[in-house]
């Protein structure tokens, strides 16, 4: 089992809309020490394309740095907007934290 301390966790909560653009931009940053990132969106109840754009920027940067990112998403709205935007093929989405951590352990 790999060292969990190298997993960085970023937790976002509530409604991620256009009003929270700057906050999202500031929160979705890859720490220099990160080997793998768990983006916990289990308490996100709504997301708009502002959030998707920031998530895509973050995920693209992580991929460039070869840092795996697992996203935990449970709200039906979040799940659906990711699909409507065609990003379900791009993001690694998991229904719970355990599955996401297993993925990160195998990927990092």
């Amino acid at each position: 089992m790999s060292d969990r301390s190298t997993f960085e966790v970023i937790k976002l909560t509530g409604e991620l809309d256009v009003a929270r653009k700057e906050e999202l931009h500031a929160a979705l940053v890859i720490a220099a020490s990160a080997r793998a990132i768990l983006l916990d969106m289990s308490e996100v109840t709504y997301a708009d394309s502002t959030a998707l754009t920031e998530m895509l920027r973050f995920s693209t940067q992580a991929e460039r740095e070869r840092i795996p990112v697992a996203i935990v998403a449970t709200s039906p709205q979040l799940d659906r907007i990711i699909r409507y935007a065609g990003l379900n093929e791009v993001f690694k989405i998991f229904a719970d934290r355990g599955e996401a951590l297993s993925y990160l352990e195998s990927a990092s």
Partner: peptide, 12 residues
């Protein structure tokens, strides 16, 4: 959920 997601984009 569908309606709110679509209209949410227009409002944003």
């Amino acid at each position: 959920v569908g309606v709110i997601t679509a209209v949410g984009e227009a409002l944003a």
